[in-house]
Design a protein around this nucleic acid. Structure first.
Lengths: 251, 251
DNA sequence: GATAATTTGTGCGTATGTATG
DNA sequence: ACATACATACGCACAAATTAT
């Protein structure tokens, strides 16, 4: 892994007179490097040892500074791998109409969606409650992988009630559009009713799909879509990489 | 660590005729145990080895079932520690008026807030941008620990612009109420303008405060509060345990 | 602080049944 | 009938995180 060398240290950058804690001086200096673009987004930071050398401070002092940057989401620390400047995340606004794909299409250069697979399955308790159907009724499940700027960013499973949406998986595969597929099956308008957000570590499969370490948390979103009559039309569970996306709620 | 023994296995629970994959049979059985309350929320699961013994299947087969339960947030797996049934999380609605403390007070038996400390600090770039003040202006920072049902659930830092809110930390310490403290300083009404959500692993300090393992992600929330004139009155960063709280957006 | 025991995480190898062409 | 690919299941070994001694 190549690593960009930081600019040489200006004399007097570290002031040992105890006017300011050493770690805070290191933090300020590193922050300056980040915002100045001396290390660009996604790129690798010097190791703790190198930084400790550069600032002539103890490794623990560097760690304290690093921790402070991490708390503020400026960098990302991967256990046993390295320290990385965080990629600029795309803010996804949670609104009744907003589709994740739409947001991403607007805010990023590129957006793509790939169907990972589809299956007819029995609704588990959570799905059946959300879709207001009896437990173990058959539903259509479609698994998708969403990308942003060429990088995989979301893994989601959508559940559609049957028999109302028989064949919707073929429409989605052909057009790639959920809205379009709904329209073909007679749903002109639909909107989000509720979204629940939590976070967890990804499963191995999810981490592989998202091309990220297992130690980087993903946000999980459960959301329910309803048609204009208030009838549930889709329940989806998405797993969203915190590497590329942050959620925004505006009031 | 005491552990509740699962009820003995009814004969014929595992069907090796390949009508259904073994791991799915195990998953169904464990799910039944959870919803039936054979193991209650927060309690420890049998280990992989014990489950493997109980069902007479390979450990990998158990792991496959466990993973499926984990994806659906029914259980929580802690590396090197054990498997636990997830606690019932309190849904916190993100709205313009909703304070986290209010939600929790409504939905849980108990809610408490403790001031961890307070300090006058220079605004870093993010804070100064949010509060619309010049960088390095002094602001009042108040660190708080929020609890729910006696368990620590949130760690947050609020930043108040100075000199407008001089002494607000004393009001907060005395009354424990943000709204009340604002009122005493002439802010009758204030509301949330924007909330940004992401997730990461907690720092050691945060994990200690929240009494949770470092491998359980926390959600991070940055939010900006404004008064009725639209002037920023507080910028806060909260770190929320995914163990007790999930976020909800309703439309 | 060092060590060991416990428990989960990961990887590779092997075998078998099922679906597909 | 055969080759191929895939998911399932088991076996073994070791890495990594946590807890107790």
């Amino acid at each position: 892994m190549t690593r960009k060398a930081l600019p040489p240290l200006a004399p007097g950058t570290v002031d040992r007179s105890r006017a300011l804690p050493l770690w805070r001086q290191v933090q300020t200096e590193l922050e300056r490097d980040i915002v100045a673009g001396a290390i660009s987004a996604g790129e690798r930071f010097p190791t703790e040892a190198e930084l400790s050398e550069r600032f002539s401070v103890h490794r623990h002092t560097v760690r304290r500074a690093i921790e402070s940057l991490r708390e503020r989401n400026l960098i990302r620390v991967e256990h046993g791998h390295g320290i990385f400047v965080r990629e600029r995340t795309v803010p996804h606004a949670l609104t009744a109409e907003g589709r994740l794909s739409t947001t991403i299409r607007q805010l990023s250069q590129n957006n793509d969606r790939k169907i990972l697979g589809t299956d007819k399955v029995q609704a588990d308790p959570a799905v059946s409650r959300a879709l207001q159907i009896r437990s173990r009724t058959l539903v259509r499940r479609v698994d998708m992988l969403g990308g942003i700027n060429g990088a995989p960013a979301t893994v989601s499973s959508m559940y559609f009630p049957l028999p109302r949406f028989i064949g919707i998986e073929r429409h989605i595969e052909e057009s790639g559009s959920i809205t379009g597929s709904f329209a073909k099956l007679g749903v002109e308008k639909y909107q989000r009713k509720e979204t629940r957000v939590s976070a967890r570590l990804p499963t191995k499969a999810e981490a592989d799909l998202l091309d990220q370490p297992r130690t980087l948390p993903v946000m999980t979103i459960w959301s329910l879509d309803i048609d204009s009559d208030g009838k549930p039309v889709a329940y989806s569970q998405s797993c969203i990489s915190t590497r590329w996306i942050e959620l925004v709620v505006r009031f």
